[in-house]
Amino acid sequence: MQVSSLPDFQPISATELAAWAKPFCMAQTLSRVLSELLGCKEFHNQGDPGTSVLPGHVSSTVSSVLLVGPPGCGKSGLLFSAALVAAEEGAGPVIFISRESLQRLPGGGREAREPLLLKRIRFLYPSSLRELLHLVSSMHLSFPAPSLIVVDGLERYLAPTCGSADGALISGLLLDSAAHFKCGLLISAAQPLEMGGDGAFLAVERYFPAQCHIYGEVTTEQEEGTFHISFPSHFPPCVLHTAKDGTLKISLPKASFS
């Protein structure tokens, strides 16, 4: 979280920090989504420190997370699950931004339990980077304060001709809007195949120090749709199974049970 915003150089007290972190802690929300998929209902940091896999001090202040993974690995599903968590528990609506509409609602059960939750999610589909920038720069006009802003597939807005200035502008605007609303920010992106040129994606990565990576292993004979999740200091390494129908399942690698 960008706590030390420009106007102030005062050291931040623990209570202030807690107040900042309170609205919506993205790292924790994402960790919860992951743990629910894993099958544990409660996976909170505050608990017996002996049993917690997470270092409790880290995640409580991170309000923006970048989820990076290859196409088709289930990023949209994870984001949608996080949106449902925020819609259920957050103070305001959730803004879900994507280039195209979701083909289907990824399974997970939460939306079946409470269909009204979907009404608390505003789906917006800007069709170009310019439209997206326009939308984000005018968020303070039209919305009641959201509890979470989600951007699914940011790379689809960054054409190969985009430079680092474009990547920085959209990242900065998103962070600035989230800071204005004191809400969470969750972004997913697929890494571009070629990292050359002016590096819009590199610029984006700079703005989001908290990153959750999903990657497939090419060398092993793993079944299709199996990926690894790496979310250092927020969640233990685990394996993500993405079924063809979009259903997500997570398991811990065997080694970590010992």
Binding site: Q2, A168, A178
Partner: peptide
Amino acid sequence: FASCHYCSCPAF
């Protein structure tokens, strides 16, 4: 921007 380091100048 007030919340993160961004400037619209070319040097940035």
